[in-house]
Every structure is written in structure tokens, then in C-alpha cells.
Design a protein around this nucleic acid. Structure first.
Lengths: 195, 195
DNA sequence: CCTTTCGCTTGACACAGTGTCAATTGACAA
DNA sequence: TTGTCAATTGACACTGTGTCAAGCGAAAGG
């Protein structure tokens, strides 16, 4: 068993990520990835079933690199609901823009590929559960605005985290990352928390 | 000049819309559209430059059919800012889910096609300008929450209108259209309007 | 030292889908 | 009758994904 094998696999994933980011997730061919990774096109199919398979793997590889677990830790270990909410928004609010290009590519693929859709859905589910936990904490603190049910609150937080996806539709980009973070944080507090 | 020409063109557009909606915007081939329209595949290229061109045209054809202008009228002619905002949210909030499948297809194309991206951007711009008008009306009524600048308010309304795009990522659809409308209306009021 | 194994390469090919071209048909109008 | 024009037919080029068979080189194990 050689130690080369995983190296090549990771080189491929890294090449895929590089290209996806550089090209904003569009028009990245298998041959491009192979070229960048310094392997033959056919080698990609030795490591991954399909293109979708490769790109899904690349996304999880990125998650790992970007240490999303560690980023979410502050939210999990926060002392109260508000802190937890802020930490949650901070973690995802920073993360989403970083992985945006790749997420976009994966979403596009999820539209046409069953397997990619499934993997992506699971990843979203994780995000959703963390969100639920943050809102639950507010509930336990009795800080939730009375005219919002727990479910509605969760839905709204979902909305807050969703906006990034539409950015590219606006002709001139109106959002800086800092403004984006500040806005969703304020919104989340305003909507969810008692005044 | 025969009257057949526009008829065929419209039959093609209608066929494209039918298929896009039926297949949720994915996997619709030129040959499928041609078959449904009862014309040859090559005929499509007599009326439209490319696939992207056809689908963009189909979207505007849909806008026309769905009478978006009439729907937005109540917002334009509202007596005060709040009515205007509500009418605006109502109009787009109902419209977006109706055209969702096609919008999705077009967005996907906008990612890879320059021309489609341009057409889509212009359409979004229209939406944006109506949004600005609604928020301006609130401003004139002096009903805008003091700690939000006009620009921020507009951005937020953008967010409100954006959520639909992510729905398909959630495994089980948590949003009914009614709930969607009620939520964004309440959100818009809460965020924008003085209490 | 020879042999097997394994990761990867090379080159060829099937297949689907878009877009193009040239020649032809068929109807309607001058 | 003739010209025009929409649309048809069949063929083809091109791109990108995925597959297949044969071969190669290096490292491991006898």
C-alpha cells in the first residue's frame, strides 16, 4: 500500500477547488481539473465515479480544510441564546462567502444530478440543525419574540443565511462581506429577540 | 407577410415553458421543445440564435402572459408607504413561486451564458427599482425606522424576495406559498417600519 | 534478483446534445 | 406562372462525459 494514492486524490480535489473558485464555479471541465492536478483525465475516473461525485467530494474536502467544525464551536458552547445566535450567524456568515463559488457549482449540479442533490441536501441539513439549536437556546432563555413560533423563527434564520446565493444576480455587487454580516446579525436579533 | 410566423414562434415559446415547468427547469433539450411545438429542431434556430436566447425569450413571454405589469399596479398607485410595501411584497411574493422553475433554469444558464446573464440582470433590475420605490414611499411618509438608511432597507427587501431560490435545497419543503407570503410581509414591516 | 501488484498512462471510442449547412418542399401572393 | 418565405430533411462538426483495453514503471515481497 503506497502513500502516493491519497496524495493523488487530494491533488485532484485541490485542483478542482482551485478551478471552481477561479472560474466562479462555471465551465470547469474534467480535462481542466486533470491538467491542473498533473494527471491524465482518465485518472479522475479511477478515484471518482462521475464528475458530480468529484465535485461533491471537493466540497467536503473544503469543509475539512476550512475547519467548519471549529468555527461552529463557539455557537455550541455559548452561555446564552443571544451569544449562541450571534456566534452562529458569525460562523456561517463568514463561511458562506468563502465557499460561495463551489456551493454554486454544486447547486447547479444538484439540479441535474440525483446523487449530488442528496449529498448537498445532507450538508444543508447540518446547517439547518445548528440553526435550530441556536433558536432553541433563545427559546429556553425565554428571549424569543412572543409573536413568532419556534418554527417560524427557524425559517427566518434560514432566510437570513440564504441571501448570498442571489448576489450574482444584482448587476453591481451591493454587498461587502462586512455589511452582509452586520445586516444579517441585526436582522436576526431584531426578528427573533424580544425588545 | 404571413400570420403564421409569430404563431410558430409563440408555439415554440409555449412549448419551452410547458417543458421547463414540467421538468422543473432541468434536462429540457432543444429536440424536446421542437417535438412539443410540433416543429423540426432546426426550426428553433430560425427563430432564436441559441438555446439561451430561446429560454430568455420564454421568460419574458411568461412575464407577459402572467401580466406582471398589472400585478404591480396596486403597488404603484397605493396611497401610502405601507400599502405600497404590502402590495409590492404581495405582487412579487405571488409571482416568484409561479415562475420559479423557469427562473431557476434561466439562472443556471446565466451562470454559463453571457447574454442570458445580461437579460436576467435587466429583469432583476426592474424588480429592484420597484422595491426602491416602495421603500422610498415609506421614507416620504416618515415611517421608515430611523436606524435604517434607505439603502439598507432596500437591501433587506432584496433579501426578503430572495429566499425562494433556496427552497429546493431543503430536503422536505417547509414553505407553503401562503406561509412564505405571510412571513416576508411581516418581516418587511418589522424591519422597515417604525414601531 | 525476479515477479507480482498497483497506480497511472495512452489512445481509441461510444454517446448525447448543440449548432450549422445545403438542398428541397409547399403554400400563399403578385 | 413565378417568386418568396417558412419550414423540412438529412448530414455533419464540435464539445464534453464516460468507458475500454493494453501497456508501463516503480515499489513490495518472495
Amino acid at each position: 500500500m503506497s502513500s502516493q494514492a491519497p496524495k493523488t486524490r487530494n491533488r485532484i480535489l485541490q485542483a478542482a477547488l482551485d478551478l471552481l473558485i477561479a472560474n466562479q464555479g462555471k465551465g470547469v471541465r474534467m480535462s481542466d481539473i486533470a491538467k491542473r492536478a498533473g494527471v491524465s483525465r482518465q485518472a479522475l475516473y479511477l478515484h471518482f465515479q462521475t464528475r458530480a461525485d468529484l465535485l461533491v467530494a471537493a466540497t467536503f474536502y473544503l469543509d475539512q480544510q476550512k475547519n467548519i467544525e471549529a468555527r461552529l464551536q463557539p455557537s455550541r458552547s455559548a452561555n446564552n441564546g443571544i451569544e449562541r445566535l450571534d456566534a452562529y450567524v458569525f460562523a456561517w456568515g463568514n463561511y458562506i462567502p468563502e465557499i460561495y463559488s463551489i456551493a454554486k457549482a454544486l447547486m447547479a449540479m444538484a439540479d441535474s444530478d440525483e446523487e449530488a442533490a442528496k449529498a448537498w441536501g445532507e450538508r444543508m441539513q447540518d446547517m439547518y440543525e445548528g440553526c435550530e439549536a441556536a433558536v432553541n437556546a433563545l427559546h429556553e432563555d425565554n428571549q424569543l419574540s412572543p409573536d413568532y413560533t419556534q418554527q417560524t423563527a427557524t425559517d427566518i434564520l434560514w432566510m437570513l443565511l440564504s441571501v448570498r446565493n442571489w448576489e450574482h444576480l444584482v448587476m453591481d455587487c451591493r454587498w461587502t462581506q462586512k455589511k452582509y454580516l452586520a445586516t444579517i446579525k441585526t436582522m436576526a436579533r431584531r426578528i427573533l429577540i424580544k425588545t
